[in-house]
Amino acid sequence: MTDDSDFHLDWRLVRANFDASAARYDEVAVLQREVGTRLLERLDLVKLAPRAVLDLGCGTGVGTRALLDRYPRALVTGLDLAPAMCALTRARSRWLRKVRAVCADAARLPLADDSVDLVFSNFTLQWCSDLDRVFAEVRRVLRPNGLLLFTTLGPDTLHELRAAWATVDDRVHVNAFTDMHDIGDALLRARLADPVMDVERFTLTYPQVRTLMQDLKVLGAHNVSAGRTRGLTGPRRLAAMIAAYERWRRDGQLPATYEIVYGHAWAPAQKLVQADAGGVVHVPLSQLRRPRS
């Protein structure tokens, strides 16, 4: 039987899906916009005047533009794995000189060390296979005392759809998502300071399961696991899954649960010194202090 420990993302499929969905993404991204707005509001609680901001996983550029509106003096970079999403970000802010869009992998940021004051990431980390690498890259590009602020999806997301498919077969049909505590552990391993996380649950309703599945496809959020079933699902299996989903119908509607994990962490005030490949430690003069007598 397949379980979440066997789940691995196919990054090529992730990129292809979001490329294909870019043109219609904003039509159905209701939850993404609402959560993005709530994430932006959390910046009201911190004193931050960033010179450089990174919108990690910028999508169509909604958050990128909102970040520039909030910090008009900052250079805002939108970064996304999908070229079509980057193109929409450029189009949305084409008259704004302080916005740029870069197509790149979150685990290989094409940015200099200590070059960003704020990394903002809404609904992106769930599509990253290696959180350790992503958080290490975030820490690398953040300036001392820089802030990482993010949302991602927790394991309770789409539990109804996952359970309905489980009555049909033991194959991977729904993406797996990382538990909040495991995300916190990854932040600590990356030596990001004072991580704080909390969870909020949203329930969207649909008249039919097919409507939910269509929305997931437009969002680029349908099954992107390396262990997914290849080819089309047979009509009998699909019909059996749809019938199993009916157990959750209330007041004529079918629910789809989303577990939203909010988190933030800070770059340390001083970058920790590490040894190079030869075991030699390089210490900046700025970190040397004469011992007190």
Rank of each mutant, 00 (worst) to 15 (best):
M1D: 10
M1S: 15
D3M: 11
D3K: 13
D6V: 03
D6R: 11
H8P: 05
L9Y: 01
R12P: 01
R12I: 02
V14L: 13
D19W: 12
S21F: 07
A22Q: 14
R24H: 12
V28Q: 07
A29V: 11
A29S: 15
A29Y: 05
A29Q: 09
L31K: 08
L31A: 12
Q32K: 02
R33Q: 15
R33K: 13
V35E: 08
E41Q: 15
R42F: 04
L43F: 14
D44T: 15
D44Y: 14
V46L: 13
K47V: 10
L48Q: 09
L48T: 01
A49T: 14
R51W: 06
V53G: 07
L54G: 01
D55P: 10
L56M: 14
G57S: 07
C58E: 10
G59W: 05
R65M: 07
A66W: 00
L68H: 06
D69N: 12
D69I: 08
R70K: 12
R70F: 09
R73E: 13
A74C: 04
G78Q: 08
M85I: 11
C86T: 15
A87M: 10
A87T: 11
A91W: 03
R92K: 00
S93C: 15
W95P: 03
L96F: 00
K98D: 09
R100H: 03
A106S: 14
A106H: 05
L109I: 14
D114R: 15
D114G: 13
D114I: 08
V116M: 01
V116C: 12
V119M: 06
N122Q: 02
N122G: 04
F123I: 10
L125M: 08
Q126G: 13
C128S: 07
C128L: 14
S129P: 12
L131H: 12
D132L: 00
F135W: 07
A136E: 06
V138W: 03
R140F: 08
R140S: 03
L142R: 06
L142N: 11
P144I: 02
T152D: 01
G154Q: 01
P155Y: 05
W165D: 10
T167I: 01
T167M: 02
V168H: 10
R171E: 06
N175F: 13
D179L: 01
H181F: 06
D182A: 12
I183T: 06
G184S: 04
L188Q: 09
R191W: 05
A193D: 05
V196F: 05
D198S: 09
D198I: 07
F202E: 12
T203F: 00
L204Y: 13
T205D: 08
D215T: 15
V218D: 00
G220Q: 09
G220S: 10
H222W: 08
S225K: 07
S225W: 04
A226E: 13
G227N: 15
R237L: 14
A240N: 10
A244M: 05
Y245I: 12
R249G: 05
R250A: 07
G252M: 08
Q253D: 10
A256H: 05
T257L: 06
E259K: 01
I260S: 03
V261T: 01
H264C: 09
A265G: 00
W266P: 05
A267M: 08
P268N: 03
Q270T: 09
L272R: 08
A275T: 14
A275D: 08
D276T: 02
D276H: 04
V283F: 04
V283A: 00
L285H: 09
L288R: 06
P291L: 01
S293D: 15
S293F: 14
